[in-house]
Design a protein around this nucleic acid. Structure first.
Lengths: 351, 351
DNA sequence: GCTGACCGAGAGAGCGCTCTCTCCACAGTC
DNA sequence: GACTGTGGAGAGAGCGCTCTCTCGGTCAGC
């Protein structure tokens, strides 16, 4: 491999390449950056010199003059909840969703030569540190993963003027901010239609937290769809998108409405918690109670029986977030188009 | 917030601060970098000027001259296995482990003002691109998460001379490379002692892949401990650390040894797959078969009943990786001490 | 054959910072 | 009083790159 020739003592610079190729630094720079106004013969000899020297551009020097960082920040915004002992680990990082998003982002960013910076914000101090870091142009754009409804970060980021895209519809749509989301209501409708199509008549739902857009939308969508199917009065119990919350919500549901024969649970993780509660109460799934989840996360496969669930194409959505950002970098000051993806129903054993 | 005064049109530079404070650029630089040879009065006025202007140093300019990047790379090395359709998402990213590691790393890196770059390597092309990127000094150190045994990356990274630390003992310990790991054998011993202490006598194990250090060590440790407890002939069936692999391994185990009353499953994820197989074969857990897992991952809680499992302190281990790297940055050319953490047994319902 | 347009390549400034070197002021020594 | 020593501040170079400006050369048009 020719790159081995690059001595670690003094890295190869543009100047070195220029000398080897017998041209000026500027010409090498043109070749590296793909300028069209270069004589093909010179281009070839420059390319050979680059290969021979194992040259790789120095990012720092480049960003110093271009004022671009060639990197975007993945900001994970957590509610402040530092553990009493041991290092802090947010909910987001342990959520399988997170990894899928990272994968989808890198899939677009890597070919574009853009680095992904991982940043965490979980209290006022870290937030203001984050914002001042971002203001100084250390990154070209921001992908924000926010886990809670009353997050000031979308607002703060908008004010920095940095291209920003949110994962999921923001709570307060005050500031015009781009987001990528799945059509939550359509997903809930898929669940409703499937349960009704199965002949279930006493259908309830375990919703997500109603202060989160995803929680609201899935409930609204489900109720609307059920009403359209002739079932205007759907019982809903609020959960919190966690496994424990799912178990607790299912207990409440069964206590108040023991006769249900179908339930739409607004996240797979909640379903994972809710299923054992059903068994303990002597219900079989899907024979006695049909269950439809939401997300098609790994939790859906961990359930027994495996969960019929509404799939959101997380990886594609993440790729779209990256793409959206990249396009905005190209044309500064563009408007902020959002993207909404279509969910699909994945049929497994639970309904 | 004073930082609001920083105009996005032209960021505040050292020069600006110097002018406001009535000193030279060099003096401001000294204050920023905490040099001791500054008159207290000047220091104060510089600090005020920094606050007033909302100055934040330009990283690119700084790295250009210091030749430090103030960032470390988190390299995720995956076996090449691009999906036939849709974006690629590696196993590592969807593993809850990954998020815990990120959390632990950030916990140390953030206070030190060091950024975390996320990089992915999954084939020869991306590997050589990665290595040449790293060679050029774009990062100060590397944390490597490798998911497979025959990974050439540890070797490649060592040759770059960059401070590197591995998550988990490397397969080939040819090159002296630092790593952070849990004492796998001690963990397996905890499982063995617990199962035997429960009075179980027909104990088997579902091991991890035997071409991976973690797989080997857990099996060796379990067998050694069982032998010491008077049970030299432990049946072992090899799994692959996945949920599906766990189910498959358990089927084979039951087919060949239906009389078992205790089993050590070398990862929680495999246990998650194995438990339903036990139920389908009419065994109760823990009454008929006691089950001990390994990892104390979220999968342990997802199991029904919840899993008694060997806990490895992932977050602390990640923090140690970051700390180890930071220390090596300070004193270049240091030796490479590794760190091995002690596992503990977490008692839940499955054993 | 001369002028002007045009195209490709080089010269050189300068991005914001660090760091060495120089210089100044003051104190101490003979 | 001249000299040396010392601590603290400023001047200035230069990190590696991009990009504008300039300039030389070629060619079409009159």
């Amino acid at each position: 491999m020719t790159a081995d020739e690059a001595p670690r003592t003094r890295p190869v610079t543009l100047e070195d390449v220029a000398q080897v190729a017998g041209v000026s630094r500027a010409t090498v720079s043109r070749v590296i950056n793909g300028a069209q106004t270069v004589d093909p013969a010179l281009r070839t000899s420059v390319e050979q010199a680059v290969a021979a020297t194992g040259y790789v551009p120095n990012r720092a020097a480049r960003s110093l003059v271009t004022r671009r960082a060639d990197s975007i920040a993945l900001v994970v915004s957590e509610r402040e909840q530092r553990a009493v002992s041991g290092p802090f680990v947010g909910r987001m990082f342990t959520d399988p969703h997170f990894g899928r998003i990272v994968g989808g982002l890198l899939d677009v960013l890597r070919p574009a030569g853009i680095q992904l910076l991982l940043m965490l914000a979980d209290d006022d101090a870290s937030r203001s540190q984050l914002v001042s870091f971002l203001r100084q142009g250390h990154v070209d754009g921001v992908v924000l993963l926010s886990s809670h409804a009353d997050d000031p970060l979308p607002e703060l980021l908008t004010r920095t003027g940095l291209p920003t895209v949110l994962a999921g519809r923001p709570t307060r749509s005050a500031a015009p901010i781009a987001y990528v989301d799945v059509d939550q209501q359509a997903g809930a409708r898929l669940a409703a239609e499937h349960l009704v199509g199965l002949g279930r008549r006493r259908i309830a739902t375990l919703s997500g937290p109603l202060d989160m857009p995803a929680g609201q939308d899935r409930l609204t969508g489900f109720r609307t769809a059920m009403a359209a199917l002739g079932e205007p009065d759907v019982v809903a119990v609020e959960g919190d998108f966690t496994q424990a919350g799912g178990a607790e919500a299912m207990k409440r549901l069964l206590a108040e409405h023991p006769a249900i024969d179908g339930v739409f649970i607004a996240s797979d993780l909640m379903a994972l918690g809710a299923l054992p509660v059903l068994y303990r109460e002597g219900r079989r799934v899907p024979e006695d109670v049909a269950v439809v989840g939401f997300d098609d996360s790994s939790a859906a496969l961990a359930c027994d029986p495996q969960l019929t669930t509404v799939r959101q194409p997380v990886e594609e959505m993440a790729a779209e977030m990256a793409g959206l950002l990249l396009r905005r970098l190209g044309e500064a000051g563009r408007s902020t188009p959002s993207a909404v993806f279509h969910p699909t129903l994945v049929l497994r054993q639970s309904a």
